[in-house]
C-alpha cells in the first residue's frame, strides 16, 4: 500500500482546560480530496493549522510524504510545508497590496519570478479563476466577497502547490457563488493534481469538492468514508449533523 500524502496519528491539542483535538488519526492519499466536517469548535481549523505549523500540537505525528514535520529540522519542516497552498475562510488578502501582488506574493517570496514578470504571471492565474486583467490593479477592499474568494484562490494556486487546504471556502457566499467557487476549486485541484483538505459546514459543497470525508466529534474522528455517502450515512452523529437535526447525540453531548 502506498504512503499517504498526509498521515496524522494521535494528534492532540488543548487550549487551557479545553481539549480541542484528542487523538486525531487521518490519512489523505495523494491526489484525493478530503472534506472535514464537524460542529463549530470541534477543532477542524486547529487540525489544518497544526499541519501548516500555525498551531503547535501537544502530541501526535503529522507526516507529509512520510516525513514527520513536527520532528523534522526547522528548515526541512518549512520545505515540506512550502508545498501547501491555503485558502483562508475570509480570504486573508493583504489590504496594503494590489490584487496582482497578492496573487504573486508567494512567487515573489520564493524568488520564482522576477518582480517585472510577476504581474503577467498573476494576470495569467487570475484568468484561471475567471477574473479579468482589469482586477489586477485594484485593492482587495474594492472587490466583492466572491471576487475576494477568487483572488484568494488564485493566490493559493499560484505556486502550483502539491497540497491545498480550503477553510470553509463557501462561507459568506450566496449558493450560486458558492457553487462557482466549488467548481473553481475542483478545476484547480484536478489541473494541478493536488491533494486537498477542505473544511466546510456546507454539505452540498462537501459533496462537490470531496472524494473522501471525515467528521470530527469530541476531539476525534467520529467517522470517515466516501464523501458521496455523507447524506446516506447511518452513523447517528453524522446523520444528525448532515441533516441538521436538532435532536440527536450532538445535542445530548452539549447538554452534559
Amino acid at each position: 500500500m502506498s504512503t499517504p500524502k498526509i498521515r496524522i496519528r494521535g494528534l492532540k491539542k488543548s487550549f487551557g482546560e479545553k481539549i480541542v483535538l484528542d487523538g486525531v488519526d487521518l490519512d489523505v492519499m495523494a491526489g484525493t480530496g478530503l472534506v472535514v466536517i464537524g460542529g463549530s469548535g470541534t477543532g477542524k481549523s486547529v487540525l489544518i493549522r497544526s499541519i501548516l505549523g500555525l498551531v503547535t500540537p501537544d502530541a501526535g505525528v503529522i507526516e507529509i510524504d512520510g516525513e514527520d514535520v513536527l520532528r523534522a529540522p526547522a528548515r526541512r519542516a518549512r520545505e515540506l510545508r512550502a508545498q501547501i497552498g491555503m485558502l483562508f475562510q475570509n480570504g486573508a488578502l493583504f489590504d496594503s497590496l494590489p490584487v496582482w501582488e497578492n496573487v504573486a506574493f508567494g512567487l515573489l517570496a520564493e524568488r520564482r519570478v522576477a518582480r517585472r514578470d510577476a504581474r503577467a504571471k498573476a494576470i495569467e492565474v487570475l484568468a484561471q479563476v475567471g477574473l479579468a486583467e482589469s482586477v489586477a490593479g485594484l485593492s482587495p477592499s474594492e472587490l466583492s466577497g466572491g471576487m475576494q474568494k477568487r483572488v484568494a484562490l488564485a493566490r493559493a494556486i499560484a505556486s502550483a502547490p502539491a497540497i491545498m487546504f480550503f477553510d470553509e471556502p463557501t462561507t459568506g457566499l450566496d449558493p450560486i457563488m458558492g457553487a462557482v467557487i466549488d467548481g473553481l476549486i475542483v478545476d484547480c485541484v484536478k489541473r494541478l493534481g493536488s491533494t486537498s483538505i477542505a473544511i466546510t459546514h456546507d454539505m452540498a459543497s462537501a459533496q462537490r469538492i470531496g472524494d473522501m470525508a471525515a467528521m470530527l466529534y469530541n476531539g476525534r474522528v467520529e467517522w470517515s468514508g466516501p464523501a458521496p455517502s455523507l447524506l446516506t450515512e447511518t452513523n447517528p452523529v453524522v446523520a444528525q449533523f448532515t441533516h441538521g437535526r436538532a435532536e440527536g447525540p450532538i445535542k445530548m453531548a452539549l447538554r452534559k
Binding site: L52, L54, R81, A82, M86, Q89, N90, L93, F94, F105
Partner: peptide, 20 residues
C-alpha cells in the same frame, strides 16, 4: 492597529503559508 487587524483577519498566518 495595522498589525492587529492583520492578525485578527488571518493575514499574518497567510504570510507564513506563503514562505514569508
Amino acid at each position: 492597529a495595522e498589525l492587529g487587524t492583520m492578525r485578527v483577519t488571518d493575514q499574518i498566518d497567510a504570510l507564513s503559508t506563503l514562505s514569508t
